[in-house]
């Protein structure tokens, strides 16, 4: 087990710009620049055994007009979860796909493309999956107001308190 832990340190030595933080038991948080992230994932996979891409999460930060992409990687050998955080600007909202490293990435990248509108270069499949019949903007962006959309699109039923007393609606 120690061999893999040493190799993780070797990865960190090779990339001195990383901000590494141990946030809890079996949890490591890494802040990495956007252009260095694919290299980091490759080193983690090849040298430290982080084979399992658990998830890719996207967070919208409208204050700085940035998307934060978080890659959660798990190592079966050393039982540790690395969350690699990186930020990309709204404009142009493009990033590289890590499909060639981790095949499951295609599902998450497709999802992020659909929900946030981020385009992943090299991702083999970014067709709509969930929102095939959705015409509006990417709904997970903070600028999309779901309550306003619902009020515009749907009508509401009048509240009828007498139904509480007579659930059959007066039909018996």
């Amino acid at each position: 087990m120690n061999r893999e832990l040493e190799s993780l340190d070797a990865v960190f030595r090779e990339m001195p710009d990383l901000k590494v933080e141990h946030t809890g038991p079996r949890r490591t948080r890494i802040q990495v620049e956007a252009d260095a992230l694919p290299t980091l994932l490759e080193l983690l996979k090849g040298r430290a055994g982080y084979l399992h891409l658990s998830a890719i999460s996207c967070v919208d930060w409208p204050d700085t007009e940035e998307f934060e992409l978080v890659y959660h990687l798990w190592s079966y050998q050393v039982s540790n979860l690395i969350s690699a955080h990186t930020r990309i600007p709204y404009d142009p909202g493009r990033y590289v796909s890590v499909y060639d490293l981790h095949a499951p990435a295609v599902y998450f990248e497709r999802d992020i493309h659909e929900m946030f509108g981020v385009w992943f270069e090299g991702c083999p499949d970014q067709e709509p999956f969930i929102l095939t019949e959705w015409q509006g903007p990417p709904p997970m962006r903070k600028s999309f107001d779901t309550v306003a959309y619902v009020n515009d699109t749907f009508e509401w039923r009048e509240y009828q308190p007498e139904w509480a007393n007579d659930p059959s609606g007066g039909k018996g």
Binding site: M115, F129, I130, L131, T132, E133, P139, M140, F144, T146
Partner: peptide
Amino acid sequence: DGGYLHRGFEK
């Protein structure tokens, strides 16, 4: 082909 049960939980 999914999305038939989409409720937008995360939103």
